[in-house]
Design a protein around this nucleic acid. Structure first.
Lengths: 174, 174
DNA sequence: GCCTTTACGAGACTTCGGGTCTCGGAAACA
DNA sequence: TGTTTCCGAGACCCGAAGTCTCGTAAAGGC
């Protein structure tokens, strides 16, 4: 049994909320951990006690945000609707995603977390839409699609309806 | 006519060489402009006089390196040989490419430079290998290939022979 | 041969954000 | 009551980016 004062859930949420708000307001690079602590009414040390750094904190803040999104669990969503939803979310959060992927290039631990919490889950969603394909083809399509999306993000090109049509056309040809 | 002492070409090259060596030795993140200046026998100010920052400097250092690569100008290289060469170079310089693309996410000017000096030229090389395809297909293939490569880079997965076969299989299906 | 202009090396300096340390106090459990 | 862990607050350290200044050097113009 763990002894001592337990972690305060209110504080945890306040920090995640503050991080999310500040990043949306000012952009990832302009937000400091001190800013987050101040808005959350928390101490800086409380942040560093539970997160290894700014990257992991922001990742957590937006992981929760993504998982709060209305995941209408119809039994098998179509590839196109999934891709549309996928791109809508990625487009809204584009600046954050770009920053996190960028920061992850300099931080191995954050890189692992990012893949586990954001990259892999999205790939799995896509994979689930391709149950009717041959397994080898499935991986191929998933790779191509996520490759296209991440490239668009890093190159700062729009993930709009035109792109979705483009991507679907590619997949159809494979 | 420009008056005053002209820019010293020796110094320019010494700085680029020092930057290149140091980045290869210690990795992008561990190199500071002060390090580069010291090894080049130059002053820090001389770096900032000609480059806006570390990113642009390293980009220039490796742009020259790439363009020095033996570009055997046979008339029309095949797609597969180009892709192999492409991946070999990208694989060797992978840590630098990752770091530059990452830094570019926080620096709009560097982002433009990176695309103009590295991303676009490589895309053009690929495009030149696809002269026999319909124009619409060409863009599609170029996008898919460069998307796959950049994704592999940012996800830190190997750009090996197996990947090349994979990529070629994808293209063949389109 | 001077004068102006710009480049150069060197080093001091400022700024700022990440991250650590410390302290007084609070919440749990034994 | 004592031990343990958490909390807010704030001081603190560190390192890298970028600026400023100074004495000097190399060009062209006069």
């Amino acid at each position: 049994m763990r002894t001592g004062r337990p972690r305060d859930e209110k504080v945890r949420l306040a920090i995640l909320t503050a991080a999310q708000e500040l990043v949306l307001e000012k952009g990832y690079a302009a937000v400091t951990t001190a800013d987050v602590a101040e808005r959350a009414g928390a101490g800086k040390q409380t942040i560093y006690r539970w997160w290894p750094g700014k990257g992991a904190l922001v990742l957590d803040a937006f992981s929760e945000w993504v998982s709060q999104a209305p995941r209408m669990s119809r039994r098998k969503p179509s590839l196109s609707s999934t891709l549309v939803e996928f791109c809508r979310g990625a487009s809204e959060a584009a600046p954050v995603l770009r920053a996190l992927m960028a920061e992850a290039q300099f931080d191995e631990d954050l890189h692992r977390r990012l893949i586990a919490q954001l990259v892999r889950p999205r790939g799995d969603e896509l994979r689930a839409c391709l149950a009717d394909r041959r397994p080898a083809d499935r991986e191929l399509v998933v790779n191509v699609l996520s490759g296209l999306v991440w490239q668009r993000l890093m190159l700062n090109e729009p993930l709009d309806a035109r792109f979705v049509r483009f991507a679907l056309r590619v997949v159809q040809r494979i």
